[in-house]
Amino acid sequence: MSITKKDIIHVADLARLGLNDEETIKYEKELNDVLNFMEKLNELNTDDVEPTSHVLDIHNVFRSDVVEDSLDVEDVLANAPDRDEDYFKVPSIL
């Protein structure tokens, strides 16, 4: 598999990375290098192998439905880059 400039633009869009042209070219090369390196996995036949998402064999970790304190609204907004009263403020959504 080889990654094209179009792929890079698509992936950057999915990842919300506003790359400029120069970066796009740079990433095209670097990502191809890394992905080629990853191709090595294809040497292995894994048809009958189960995937491992969690190394630890645990399940059913639940909490009970009991209310706990929320944060003070000033702490919620303590790091907000921009706020409007007690809301987070963001530029317009198109």
Binding site: R63, V66, V67, E68, D69, S70, L71, V73, V76, L77, E85, D86, Y87, F88
Partner: peptide, 17 residues
């Protein structure tokens, strides 16, 4: 998380880390 689900409330008051 343990925040309450009550409808309404002042903005950003039913929020935790």
């Amino acid at each position: 998380c343990g925040c309450k689900t009550t409808f309404g409330g002042d903005p950003n008051t039913h929020v935790c880390p």
